[in-house]
Design a binder for these strands. Structure first.
Lengths: 208, 208
DNA sequence: TCTCCTAATTGATCCATATCAATTAATTTC
DNA sequence: GAAATTAATTGATATGGATCAATTAGGAGA
């Protein structure tokens, strides 16, 4: 598809969107009003319809996205043609092809909207300028990646330590209410189990 | 144990050690000589004997470690008393309890020397001072975490996509020569499979 | 060099979950 | 709102890898 992406929002929406990202920034670093304005000025507003792609393999990656409203999934296809969900992104998450973004390369993943979504995007070149003028944002992104790193590590260890049922419960808890927003077969995929198995686990949970 | 840790090295060793970290820094950012001196001045030299612990659960984490020479393993114990290896650290890797370090908390993991090892350590408070005086190091650590994040993501996807044999081969390739430095049951643990299963996989590889 | 202890291997069995197949339920779409 | 798709569930079977048990191989220490 890749249709359905529209830049520029109404004044009201822009205010809401900036409010959302500024809150997020303030939660992580102590930025001055000047810093925030500088940062806000390089952001673009993006809306995307359910089912549309924000990113597809082969595309040159120049942007990362912040989810103001909505839900997306990031996945890739392996050599055998199997899909693997890397991440779901909901409100107040950054999403993108990190690898390609930092290495200024070509995407190897799909990012697809699971719901109609509102996003903010930042371009690599503009972000680097922000880093120069307001190095505090270097810290912001370092903290974000560190947090993501830690939560990802938990995902690895959880997969080794826990059975499917425990992991499904953990998933629903940490991604609050997500089981009502995305398909079960996508959750199964994310957890690395078959949809049939997840279905049976969900049955058992209903009973107990 | 926690014995066997000795700070301060001979002049020759210190030079070697700083050479090692400076090379690593230069590979990631363009730091001035001043920046490097500033950074080097806050590093401590640490040696640790095989079998000794660099870190144990409950200890207050104030340091991260850079491996100049040697090999270590980071692991934790889950509620059921099972050990899970998080990471092996060899030359030119940073190792520590990231989570606790960034949140100034208490360690939940063990870091144990697999070989006699030489390390450099940096304290949280001193690192923050470096960040203030030379913000370029904020970038250095952001890049390191980003790289670690990306390689960790590959570990997750590899576990979903590939079978034990493929993952063992991948592991040996990416951690060059590691299969001769650490025990097979620790590699099995890291891969999340039983030692017996890994043993059989290794047999099959010998034949084919 | 011998002894002891730990690691690795090998065999047999078991189990969680994948896979295949069919049915039912829930969404889209016109 | 009926038809057509797509998702979820349920049942039956197959399988990769775990677990248990026993043996062999390697290393460290006396």
């Amino acid at each position: 598809m890749l249709l359905g992406i529209v830049k520029r929002e109404s004044f009201y929406d822009i205010c809401t969107m900036q409010h959302s990202i500024n809150n997020h920034v303030k939660k992580h670093i102590s930025a001055t009003e000047n810093d925030l304005v500088l940062f806000n000025n390089v952001l673009n507003e993006v809306t995307i319809a359910k089912g549309a792609y924000l990113l597809q393999p082969g595309h040159h990656v120049t942007e990362e996205f912040f989810v103001v409203k909505g839900c997306l999934k990031a996945y890739y296809m392996d050599n055998r043609g199997n899909k693997h969900i890397i991440q779901f992104a909901v409100e107040n998450w950054w999403v993108g092809d990190f690898d390609a973004f930092y290495n200024e390369g070509t995407s190897s993943i799909y990012i697809e909207a699971v719901e109609d979504s509102q996003l903010l995007s930042i371009e690599s070149s503009k972000l680097n300028k922000v880093f120069e003028k307001a190095p505090i944002f270097e810290r912001y992104f370092r903290i974000l990646v560190t947090e993501a790193f830690i939560s990802q590590r938990k995902r690895i260890l959880s997969a080794q330590e826990k059975n499917t049922q425990e992991r499904y419960v953990e998933f629903c808890t940490s991604y609050s209410n997500i089981e009502n927003r995305v398909a079960n077969y996508d959750i199964a995929n994310y957890l690395g189990v078959s949809p049939e198995n997840l279905s049976r686990v969900r049955q058992k949970l209903k009973i107990s």
